[in-house]
Amino acid sequence: MNLQSANLHFLLVCTEVYLDKNMKILIVDDFSTMRRIIKNLLRDLGFTNTAEADDGNTALPMLQSGNFDFLVTDWNMPGMNGIELLRAVRADERLKQMPVLMVTAEAKRDQIIEAAQAGVSGYVVKPFTAVALKEKIEKIFERVQPK
């Protein structure tokens, strides 16, 4: 690979934690542009197996029937919001082990504590950087599958 290239890829892949690049990821956000940004960043990290949902109500049935390995969700959404989705996932016998990363503009300390108590695996505040997203994903999977 060419290190002179400005491609984001090199920035992101220089420290390698073992991650299954084929894992199936569900991206939940009510704004299609934000879903697209996250999808692109994940693709730059090598994760191409992604699906999208625009709120908890559409996401939950997908999770229940779709063999997903990882959930990335916003908080503030119409219908079922992200924290409700997180609780629903943790309450579901088959889904409760799934790592959940929250990527959200919600920045109140109370809210972050609430998400932690509800069992979130990682929390990224918007606006965020590609590096922050990568770090959090790696940290989550280091914890989930210690080498």
């Binding site: 503030n76 503009a105 920045a107 109140k108 300390r109 918007k126």
Partner: peptide, 17 residues
Amino acid sequence: EKGEGPQMHADTREDVV
């Protein structure tokens, strides 16, 4: 529980990161 969206003046507030 309800999302509030982006917070203004986060750098001068104690309750917001």
